[in-house]
Each structure stands twice: as C-alpha cells, then as structure tokens.
C-alpha cells in the first residue's frame, strides 16, 4: 500500500487540481473545434492549450505544483516515473532525463509506455517500486501534447468524433483528443488519512492490437484482481476509460457487468479533458479522488496492444 501526498493537473481547464475539479463540477469542458491547428489535418474537436506547450516545461510545471502540495522536495530517495505515449517529439527518454535533472534528482527515471493505460500502469509501477523498498517516494507524471502525428493517426482509424464525445451514450461517435500534464506523488511512509493506492492489475486481452476484446477479458481480469476481498457494494465510484468509441464503451460495459459492478456509479471524464493519452490515467485518478473525497475508487483503462489496467484506491 502506498499513500498519495500530493497531486496537480495542468490542463486547458486550469492550473492545479483544484481549478480542474472546479471546472468539472461547473460542467466546463476544454473541448472545441480546431480548424487550422496542424497543417493538412482535417478539422477536429479536442481539448488543447491555447498556446502550444513544450513537453518538458509543462511536466516541470505540473511536478512543481504537486511538490508544493506535498511539502516534500524531490529527494534522493525519490523515483520519477513518466507516463507518456509520444513524449517530446517522439523521444520519451531524453525528456524524462531532463525533468529529473531539473529537480536535481540522482535516480534514472522510469518511463512507462503502455499505450492509453500508461497513466494507471505508472501508478502500479510506483506502488511496486516503493513496496519493494527501492525508494521512499515516487513522483508519477502523465503528459502528452497533441501533434499532427497523433491527430492524423486517430483520423486514419476514423476514431475521432466531430463533436464533443458522449461516453456510453447509444449515439456516441468516437473520441476527442486532449492535452494535459498531471502529477501524483506517492510515498511508502504511512500517512494519517488521505488516499491510499491499495491494488493494481494489468492484463492483456491476447485478442487484437487495436480492437477491444468483445468479452472484455483483460479489463474483466483487472477488475477481478483489484476487487479481491471486496464486494461490489464496497466500491463508491468506478472511473471508466469511456473513450466514447462504439467498441471501447461496449467492451467496458461487458467487463463491468461480468465483474458484477453494474450498480456502481461510473465516471467518464473525456467530455471535459478529451483523451489525454499518457496523462489520462493520472488526470482521471486525481479527479476521482477529489470528487469522491473519501471512500473506495476503482480506475480502469484500456489501450492499443490489447492492454488493460485497473487500480483501487481508498480513503477512510
């Protein structure tokens, strides 16, 4: 078990977790239509920063904000774990090293690149490394900024919705992309109160690289793992991936029903932030913790490569 001692979200909705939670509670969305953001790219609906951001400074801003929150410094016994899919112009390792160097931390960073599940997987990696006694604190950063590369790819898959996305709606048309940097700081040192990361699980569907399993096999196994010893009634909130593509949401519904969690309240945050890729698991975990305040929260994600992940957090 590891303990959350600070977090931050920097997104088009605001700077800091509080500003982002308030925006969500007020029903504000970062999504809008972009016509000429990237050369040659067809118009698309997304949640992007007004001024294009650079990857490393954006991450540093998010970490600084979370460190202020947690009252710890980036000490030698701290490991930095970066969750991203495309990093800084396709380079994932160099920006992670630049972030670590900025904070004067001596430990080589870990980058988790497990497609859309990366932000949840990075938290699972943090839990494992802290529980193994290798470090005292882990700074988990999720960040992706949108480029022509990503937008064109999702357009090629015809996965983008021309309108703000509608997760789990019968008339959903696809996903919207988004940009954000978010940070959660975990510590191995027991804390009085606050959120604890209790369980985590990663499973592959072993079915298809880009289409979710019809039986939701990987997602179902992740939910079963993180529910070990728990009853469905013990779960106060289930944070789904909810990309609003027809196949993803149908797969999640199947997995949720197979796990007996169909009566648990569900949150799907992509209509506010878009799909922030490497940041999604971190952003959506923070919003879940803040909106629930206390109780038990399960967060799930799925992604390309057939990978699924889930974590369970609790706050008494």
């Amino acid at each position: 078990m590891v303990y959350c001692i600070g977090h931050s979200i920097i997104s088009p909705l605001g700077e800091g977790s509080q500003a982002n939670v308030e925006a969500v509670q007020a029903g504000r969305s970062g999504l809008r239509l972009y016509h000429n953001r990237f050369a040659d790219v067809e118009p698309f609906c997304a949640s992007l920063f007004d001024t294009p951001q650079e990857f490393v400074p954006l991450c540093i801003c998010s970490v600084t904000c979370a460190l202020n929150d947690s009252q710890i410094a980036a000490l030698p016994e701290t490991i930095f774990i970066l969750s991203t899919t495309k990093g800084d112009n396709l380079d994932l390792l160099t920006p992670a090293q630049a972030i670590v160097q900025h904070f004067g931390n001596p430990n080589p960073p870990v980058v988790v690149s497990n497609a859309c599940t990366s932000g949840v997987c990075a938290q699972i990696t943090a839990k494992r490394l802290l529980e193994a006694g290798l470090y005292k604190h882990a700074i988990v950063i999720g960040c992706d900024i949108q480029t022509r590369f990503i937008v064109s790819g999702f357009q090629a898959f015809k996965a983008l919705s021309p309108e703000p996305c509608r997760p789990f709606s019968p008339d959903r048309q696809g996903l919207n992309l988004g940009e954000a940097a978010a940070t959660i700081i975990y510590t191995a040192e027991p804390q009085p109160g606050g959120w604890k990361l209790v369980a985590g699980s990663i499973h592959n569907d072993a079915n298809h690289l880009s289409a979710p399993s019809r039986t939701g096999e990987g997602a179902y196994r992740c939910l079963t793992d993180v529910m070990a010893g728990m009853q469905p009634a013990d779960i106060d909130l289930l944070g789904v991936h909810g990309t609003a593509t027809p196949y993803n949401d149908a797969m999640e519904r199947t997995a949720i029903e197979r796990a007996g969690l169909q009566d648990v309240p569900v949150s799907a945050l992509k209509p506010f932030f878009g799909h922030t890729m490497g940041a999604a698991g971190v952003v959506e975990t923070i919003i879940g913790m803040e909106i629930l305040k206390h109780g038990t929260f399960v967060k799930m994600l799925s992604g390309f490569g057939g990978v699924n992940a889930a974590i369970r957090l609790t706050c008494e």
Binding site: V111, V112, N204, V307
Partner: peptide
C-alpha cells in the same frame, strides 16, 4: 492474458 508492460529506460 497476464500482464504486458513496456518501459523506456
């Protein structure tokens, strides 16, 4: 159908 993970190190 167990864990699949990829790290950049």
């Amino acid at each position: 159908q167990g864990e699949t993970s990829f790290y950049i190190l």
